[in-house]
Simulated scan of single mutants.
Amino acid sequence: MRVYIAGSGAMGCRFGHSLSKTDHEVILLDNWEDHIQAIRENGLKVTGDFDETVKLPIMKPTEAVEVADLIILLTKADQLPKMLQDIKGIIGEQTKVLSLLNGLGHATTMRRYVPDESIMVGVTIWLAGLKGPGHAHLEGPGSIFLQNMSGDGQAVAHIVDMFNQAGLNATYDENVIESIWRKACVNGVMNPTCTIMDCTIGELFGTEGGLNLVQGIFKEFIAVARAEVGNIDEEGIWKYIMETSKKASHHYPSMHQDLIQHGRKTEIDYLNGAVVFKGKRVGISTPYCQMMTDMVHAKEAMLGLR
């Protein structure tokens, strides 16, 4: 298969590195000039669980011309419409397009550019960070849960197999929307809090005040998720959050990496902000999520990002 990774930041590099170990053609797409140049000249440097450099082709999205068999979307949420517009020429009749973006509501955006039968959605809990242009730091175990929106799991079994050949621990999940809500809940309680308080996940969960804040945000996510998708495993998601807080205790979440470390706009509107929006539609009050959204927006404004 010809596989494009649309958005080759930290997670895109994680997937590019893993898929480079298979016999499929893997192409990175990104718009960061220094990153593109570093990978073209020196290859993708990987540290952490691995210490190696792999050669991968990389180009700007508008430079891609050969039709894809699979496109893996790993952009930032607010960059998704432009990415889909830029790569529309490589989306053929048989192309599958998989969104693994953080946050909520991306299938709605995809439907403007991709037919329903070509859309896949999923969630990944792999961790990754960028140390600089062309340098990814990869640590810890992870997994992928995905679903074909047409409902035909057999039609994408070869894609699940490819991910597993690459060691990415993929599972076809007929109820992936709940998994997406679970991941959004994890990000919603960890990302803005660690960003505003400039702390690791372990530091946040290691204080009584931090844990109280996490619990308040969590309850709002669960209430809105239950209103949208019906039955949801509140106890299981809370257990998962606590397990994740231990496994990733030394980790700064992606929103902290974006805003504090690199001065980039965040995905808050697709996490806590989305919960505020959805909550208003169904009459659920979300003061914790509103506060987190306002605080992150305020920080973005202070840095000249809004």
Rank of each mutant, 00 (worst) to 15 (best):
V3T: 08
V3K: 02
Y4C: 00
G7L: 07
G12Y: 07
R14A: 01
G16N: 07
L19D: 05
S20A: 14
S20P: 08
E25G: 07
V26F: 13
I27V: 13
I27S: 03
L29K: 11
L29G: 08
L29E: 11
W32L: 14
W32N: 15
H35K: 10
I39V: 14
I39Q: 08
L44G: 07
T47M: 11
D49G: 14
L56Q: 13
I58R: 10
M59K: 14
P61I: 14
E63A: 14
A68M: 10
D69H: 11
L70N: 01
L70F: 03
P81Q: 06
K82S: 06
M83H: 06
M83C: 12
L84G: 02
Q85K: 15
D86F: 02
D86Q: 03
I87H: 05
I87V: 15
G89V: 05
G89F: 12
I90H: 12
I91Y: 10
Q94N: 15
Q94A: 15
K96E: 01
L98A: 04
T108C: 01
T108A: 12
M110R: 03
D116F: 02
V121T: 15
V121G: 11
G122Y: 12
V123W: 14
T124H: 05
I125K: 02
G129K: 14
G129C: 11
A136Y: 00
A136R: 00
S143V: 01
L146N: 05
M149D: 09
G151M: 01
G151V: 08
D152G: 04
A155E: 05
V160S: 00
N164H: 09
N164M: 09
N164G: 06
G167L: 03
Y172D: 09
D173P: 03
N175S: 11
V176A: 01
I180T: 09
W181F: 01
W181P: 00
R182F: 01
K183D: 12
K183H: 10
V186H: 03
N187S: 04
G188Y: 04
G188H: 09
T195P: 07
M197H: 07
D198K: 15
T200A: 10
T200Q: 09
G202H: 02
F205G: 03
G206K: 10
L211E: 13
L213R: 08
I217Q: 00
E220C: 06
R226Q: 13
A227H: 09
E228C: 04
V229N: 08
G230L: 11
G230S: 10
I232M: 03
E234M: 03
E234D: 11
E235R: 04
I237C: 01
Y240C: 00
S245T: 10
S245D: 01
K246R: 04
A248M: 10
H250S: 13
H250P: 00
P253K: 02
S254E: 08
M255Q: 13
H256L: 08
Q257K: 05
D258M: 08
D258H: 06
I260S: 02
H262Y: 11
R264N: 07
T266Q: 08
I268K: 05
Y270N: 11
N272P: 01
G273S: 01
G273V: 02
G279K: 13
R281K: 13
V282S: 07
T286C: 15
Y288I: 00
Y288K: 01
C289S: 15
M291C: 12
M295W: 06
M295Y: 04
V296G: 07
H297T: 04
E300Q: 09
L303A: 08
L303V: 04
L305N: 12
L305R: 10
